[in-house]
Amino acid sequence: MKEQTVTKIIVITSGKGGVGKTTTSASFAVGLASRGFKTAVIDFDIGLRNLDLIMGCERRVVYDFVNVIRGEANLNQALIRDKHIKDLFILPASQTRDKDALTLEGVSTVLDELSKTFDYIVCDSPAGIERGAQLAMYFADSAIVVTNPEVSSVRDSDRMLGLLSSKTRRAEEGREPLTEHLLLTRYSPKRVARGDMLSLSDVNEILAIPLLGVIPESQAVLRASNSGDPVILDKESDAGQAYMDAVGRFLGENIPHRFIEEKGNWLKRLLNFKEKETV
């Protein structure tokens, strides 16, 4: 199951806001940890902390990322143990309005310390291309580019790919570039079939990076955030299964893509209530 030795840093990024980065960070972290990898997930969205809510640990936040960087708390005090999975820890963002709170040295120190004991570090990037987003990607070994099948999201993703190839430590040191993965989220095969939405192959052709997975538009995501249990834990749901598949593929497993075709005919749909849930 588990055979990781060198710590891997993964950034979940997109440029555009509201496309599903935090949803993805939470589910990915749970997925990796449930396979036995010791995993930390860090909220880089300083001033707009939200990962804690999605992970259901908002009431247990005492210290945060910026407290650790400023030396006001040590890492162990700030890390929150996940309530579901043993090997999963959350480092929440600070709610400060000081946009210079994150520093390159500070982030570097925290990541170095986490690297001593963790297998995976998942960095939930804020939207935009400012400091927070750049620091979230700077130390990454892999990037998961979260994209919606929509013009502004695809364009922003391409812009992020440009930054990933030039503004990371790997790029600056001339090392082997980070691995890039496309995660197409909020996908609606029905709207694609109707000709209202960019298709998987359209987005794939434009961005031209390896496809990690397709997460369907799903009502299970809102339910998951309501209760603070990442959607990957909802094993019955389409989105939960799609995230589980994506984690498997990330770990090198060969899993066919699902949820990319329009559901069966109306009769089948009528007989299968669960299928009705996808928009």
Binding site: V151, R155, R194, G195, M197, L198, I206
Partner: peptide, 12 residues
Amino acid sequence: PEKTSHFAKERL
């Protein structure tokens, strides 16, 4: 309604 996704692709 008219299909629009091909406009999106071309413009992108």
